[in-house]
Amino acid sequence: MNSLQGKTAIVTGASTGIGATIAKELAKEGANVVLAARRLEKLDDVKSEILKITNNNVKVIAIQADMSVQSDVNQLAEKALAELGNVDILVNNAGQMLTSTIRSGQVEEWEQMIDVNIKGVLYGIHAVLPSMLSQSSGHIINIASVSGHEVTKTSTVYSATKYAVRAISMGLEKELARTGVRITNISPGMVDTDLNRNSAWNDRKMLEATDIAKAVVYAVTQPDYVNVNEITVRPVSSDSARVLRFYK
Rank of each mutant, 00 (worst) to 15 (best):
A23R: 00
T152D: 07
L244F: 07
E208M: 10
T154I: 12
V107F: 09
R245C: 01
L98D: 10
P130Q: 00
A77Y: 09
K42Q: 11
T16V: 11
N55M: 04
D192T: 01
N229C: 02
L51P: 13
T210V: 15
I141P: 02
N229Q: 12
V73M: 03
R178N: 15
V107T: 15
G85R: 07
V116Y: 00
V146M: 14
Y123W: 05
V60Q: 11
N56Y: 12
Y218F: 13
E49C: 03
S100I: 05
T193H: 12
I102K: 07
T8N: 15
Y225Q: 00
D88W: 06
V243Q: 14
T221H: 00
R38Y: 04
T161H: 05
S155D: 13
T193P: 08
V60G: 07
V157I: 15
D211P: 04
N202P: 06
K214R: 15
T16Y: 05
D66I: 05
I168S: 00
E150D: 14
V73W: 00
A127S: 14
K47E: 03
H149I: 11
K162P: 02
G85S: 10
N86D: 12
D88H: 15
T184F: 02
V116L: 01
V236M: 13
N142L: 11
P130C: 02
G19V: 13
I63Q: 11
E108V: 11
Q135W: 06
S15L: 04
G19M: 10
Y123H: 10
I18H: 08
E111T: 14
K248Q: 13
A36V: 05
R182N: 06
R38D: 08
V107G: 02
L244R: 13
Y158P: 01
Q112W: 03
N55E: 15
A215Y: 02
G120A: 04
R103Y: 06
G6E: 12
A167Q: 05
S159H: 04
L195R: 11
T8E: 14
A200Y: 11
M97S: 13
Y247Q: 08
A144C: 13
I22V: 14
V228K: 01
N32W: 02
D45G: 00
K174T: 12
V121M: 00
S100C: 01
R166I: 13
S136I: 04
G180T: 05
K153M: 10
S240E: 15
G95I: 01
V116A: 02
A200W: 10
V60E: 07
K42D: 06
A36M: 01
S134H: 06
A167N: 07
I141D: 04
R204T: 03
L40A: 05
I212P: 00
V146I: 13
V69T: 13
D224I: 14
S15A: 10
E150Y: 14
R234Q: 10
V46P: 09
